[in-house]
Design a protein around this nucleic acid. Sequence first.
DNA 1: TCATTTCTGAAACAATTGTTTCAGAATATT
DNA 2: AATATTCTGAAACAATTGTTTCAGAAATGA
Lengths: 192, 192
Amino acid sequence: MARNVEFDEAAAIQKAMEVFWKKGYNATSLRDLTDAMKINSSSLYNTIGDKQELFVRCVQHYTDIRKEDWDKRLSSERSPLAILKDYIHEAVNIIINCEDSCMAVKSAFEVATNDERVKKILAADDQRSYQFLHNLIKKAMDKGEIRDDEDPALLADYFNSIWTGWYESFILHGDPIKIKRMAEYFIKQLTK
Amino acid sequence: MARNVEFDEAAAIQKAMEVFWKKGYNATSLRDLTDAMKINSSSLYNTIGDKQELFVRCVQHYTDIRKEDWDKRLSSERSPLAILKDYIHEAVNIIINCEDSCMAVKSAFEVATNDERVKKILAADDQRSYQFLHNLIKKAMDKGEIRDDEDPALLADYFNSIWTGWYESFILHGDPIKIKRMAEYFIKQLTK
DNA sequence: TCATTTCTGAAACAATTGTTTCAGAATATT
DNA sequence: AATATTCTGAAACAATTGTTTCAGAAATGA
């Protein structure tokens, strides 16, 4: 009986995400967003909602595409340890190549401390990568590729939290060699 | 020939720092600041400067008191390895007890990406703790307390960047046990 | 084709933003 | 005590904030 929404919501979310990613939640204005999304604020409020709601959707989108991206990167038939090593090298590449750091990390420190919904999304994303690592580590242990005298759950937590500091280091010093050397050391620790 | 400044600038900076620490740079308004500092905005602009300048001063203050705090905590006559272990345990205690995470880390991700002065202050602070660790690690190696088949500079970098991820983990999961277990694993790695 | 519903664009909204103004109070020197 | 200088408080500033309004354009189903 009536009109349909004209703009492509998925594309608009993608654009909004890019702005939030670069500038952070609080430094991004509604004008910044509607400019990038190429929609009017009335359309935004009619379909998605207010700024907070939009941000939640963007964080969710970020973790969604990150999941897909990792699935693609690591969909090999190689051994568990080889995949773990790939994971580390891919992570290093992302850290030293992306201009705006990691949106999940930035949002954890800027928004998750105050916004329960954002915290939940980021915690779920963290849990997902944790599970991925946990499985791989267990398999690698079963195959005897890495020593099995440590709790795989502990190793997965440790593994999973190592990147954030490397992001910070790269922001402060911009030194890719530093990151690469830490990664090599980390791999060495894991295997010996 | 004239009046002196009435308010206690050091105390005002301290108060402003607390607000910035809790809320972040962009979410803090000038009213938030002048309320906490208990001064008028005209006094603020006459003495310290604008919001950015005030923030720079607060970040500097944060790293200053952090330096003093660590000097106090670690001014023991114990062995290098014992001091390294103390360092880890103190860091864990700070991480799992502070409500508003670490201002340096938060500012690195929210502000240092865009503000060169803030980046410089945080990089210098990072460099300071790096040097502290580097010296200790070298001493511990000389004394044979930890194995010396790794570059102490690399170990210091690795050591220095490990905390940030633990802060993030604590924000997302609020689980002190997780942090403590990672710390114990880290110590074990270091010594064996 | 028409009626009905929904979406869009531009403008406006009040509130808040960071910053400035300035008259008068306050004080250090003479 | 007089004077000169500086600081403070309250108010105002324009600009921007997030959000809402609403008339009219658009498109659906009858």
